[in-house]
């Protein structure tokens, strides 16, 4: 899922400085699960901002709401009245939610209250690790199900590099060496043969390097159905 974390309060305060009535809009999906932008965090941030702005001598109003998925128009439509009534929207969704809101309500500015961090997994209570970089050309079948693109600091396809020591990455002792993990896993599966071949240069065109990406499924498009019927 998408992992995010709340922006520092001071940054949020400066973003909303020019607005009186602020709708804090949470999202019920990924950011709820990672405790960054769900209903609970909307409430906590609203309280913190009420207190902080009052101390600063401002008299701002904060409205609280949370939709199920801010990245889809139909869910945001449910709170259209609240959006209308606010001077600005402070979104606690990921960057996709923030952009959906700005597209859907072009007359209202929606600000990001979170920093969208990565695609990851909760590894223990309160700890999330990156797992996928959405490179668009999955190599997990070659690497024992451990992603070197997202988890090796240099995204090596022929690791581990010379900086792997005691299972850790030279970049930071908090980071597990992805290639040590891959080696251990392939050894356990008796598939070390997969590490013996030189993996060729990756086609990055399916990654962000190919420009903004888009998937079109003609079989799912409503226009497709209409064309067929006509």
């Amino acid at each position: 899922m998408i992992i995010a974390e709340q922006k520092p309060l001071d940054e949020i305060k400066s973003m909303i400085a020019d607005y009186q009535k602020v709708l804090i809009l949470g999202c019920g999906t990924c950011v709820t699960i990672c405790f960054a932008g769900g209903e609970k965090e909307v409430g906590a941030l609203a309280s913190a901002l009420r207190m902080a702005t009052r101390l600063d001598g401002q008299n701002k109003e904060f409205i609280e709401a949370t939709v199920q998925r801010q990245c889809e128009y139909e869910f945001n439509e449910e709170v259209a009245d609240l959006i209308e009534e606010a001077d600005v929207v402070l979104s606690l969704a990921c960057g996709i939610g923030v952009q959906t809101m700005n597209e859907q309500f072009p007359n209202k500015l929606t600000l990001p209250g979170l920093n969208t961090a990565f695609l990851g997994q909760p590894v223990e209570q309160g700890v999330w690790d990156e797992r996928c970089q959405a490179c668009g050309d999955c190599v997990l079948y070659l690497t024992g199900g451990i992603c070197p693109i997202a988890r090796c600091s240099k995204s090596l396809l022929n690791g581990p590099c010379g900086g792997s020591q005691n299972g850790k990455c030279e970049v930071n002792p908090e980071i597990d060496c992805a290639w040590q993990l891959i080696y251990d896993r392939l050894q356990a599966l008796d598939r070390l043969d997969l590490m013996m071949e030189v993996k060729p240069a990756k086609d990055w065109s399916t990654s962000r390097d190919g420009g903004p990406r888009k998937i079109v499924r003609e079989d799912l498009r409503l226009t497709f159905v209409e064309e067929k019927q006509s």
Partner: peptide
């Protein structure tokens, strides 16, 4: 070496290829 060790740790890295490639 990863740029985190150097004097421009906020740089964007490339790593289009690895040493083997």
């Amino acid at each position: 070496d990863h740029q985190v060790f150097g004097n421009h740790p906020t740089a964007k890295n490339v790593f289009d290829l690895d040493s083997m490639q």
